[in-house]
């Protein structure tokens, strides 16, 4: 088992190198402000897609309400810093916990539903969260909560992203994580193997929701504002698309999906009228040619190039 620990340390080292390179590029303005912004956005989207992948890809529960948890994180984080004047670090923790708690409360009753019914219920709950926020004057109602300090930067997003990726990767490579995989593969057989399916479904949903909350805190503290319009079901679709495009149940896939779609969107920013049309055609064509997603449920690893190596999602640095 020592080689697993060695791999972890090697991956972490890789992250440090990647971080140093990126940070230098940003410092010397080789990466300009436009791309810096998009890199931060990519990081936030990676957190979102990786956390949704835990629910949809690994546990096989079809959830499309992720934007709701993103909103909860964004707003509770902003309340901590703007309304209460407390530090950003605390906002990150509270935002994560609140979204997780809500995920737990929502997951407990709704995860009894199957397939498309679960999908529409989570979609509805995401919308309900947004509409409730829209009606709370304390957080600015329909005009949004403004004046949020910019506390998020590349370093924050990078290291929080690495944290989330490692968290979920290690989760999946443990007994509880394997229980989730079993539920995805065959719920009845999983239950017969002694797995309390409700418990693990709710666990995956809670963890996924919590990290969406983390992404929300980072998001609102980068763009100065938390606005209800940023958290519609279209945003949930966005995240879902990243996960499916990359390949459900693949860490490398979720990361690649987030990088690719955010990147395409950024590249097309120069052609505002054509942007969404080209984006949608790209999406359709990619799905036509890779219906199982870019990675299927495999991981990017040395195995793809030569035999041997392990198949754990060791692509944290794939940014």
């Amino acid at each position: 088992m020592n080689n697993i620990r060695k791999q972890d340390i090697m991956s972490l080292l890789g992250c440090f190198v990647l971080f140093a390179v990126m940070q230098l590029l940003i410092m010397f303005e080789i990466i300009g402000p436009f791309w810096e912004l998009n890199i931060v956005l990519i990081g936030i989207n990676i957190i979102l897609s990786v956390s949704l992948n835990l629910i949809n890809g690994y546990t096989g529960q079809f959830s499309i309400g992720h934007a709701g948890f993103l909103a909860v994180g964004a707003y509770t984080g902003a309340i901590i810093t703007v309304k209460l004047g407390l530090p950003f670090e605390l906002a990150l923790i509270v935002g994560t916990l609140c979204a997780g708690l809500l995920g737990f409360l929502i997951g407990l009753p709704t995860l009894r539903l199957n397939g498309d019914y679960l999908a529409i219920a989570t979609l509805g709950l995401g919308e309900i969260i947004r509409i409730c926020i829209l009606n709370i004057e304390y957080v600015g109602g329909a005009s949004g909560l403004m004046g949020i300090p910019r506390e998020t930067n590349f370093a924050w997003v990078f290291w929080v992203g690495i944290f989330v990726i490692f968290f979920i990767k290690n989760f999946i490579n443990s007994a509880p994580g394997r229980s989730c995989l079993a539920i995805r593969e065959n719920e009845i057989a999983a239950e017969t193997m002694g797995i309390d399916t409700t418990k693990y479904k709710v666990m995956a949903f809670t963890i996924g929701a919590a990290f969406a909350g983390t992404a929300g805190v980072l998001f609102s503290h980068y763009f100065y504002i938390a606005h209800p319009a940023s958290f519609t079901f279209m945003r949930s679709f966005d995240i879902l698309t990243m996960v499916v495009l990359g390949g459900l149940g693949s860490m490398s896939g979720a990361i690649t999906g987030a990088v690719l779609l955010t990147g395409i969107s950024a590249f097309l920013a120069e052609y505002p009228e054509w942007r969404m049309v080209i984006y949608s055609i790209t999406l359709i064509v990619l799905m036509l040619y890779r219906p199982q997603g870019l990675f299927g449920n495999k991981e990017l690893s040395l195995k793809m190039f030569k035999l041997g190596g392990d198949n754990s999602g060791r692509t944290a640095e794939g940014k």
Binding site: L240, T241, V244, S280, L283, M287
Partner: peptide, 13 residues
């Protein structure tokens, strides 16, 4: 789910 994403793509289109 792939067809679902395609449907979302068609919707955007």
């Amino acid at each position: 789910i792939a067809i679902l994403i395609t449907a979302i793509g068609v919707s955007f289109f």
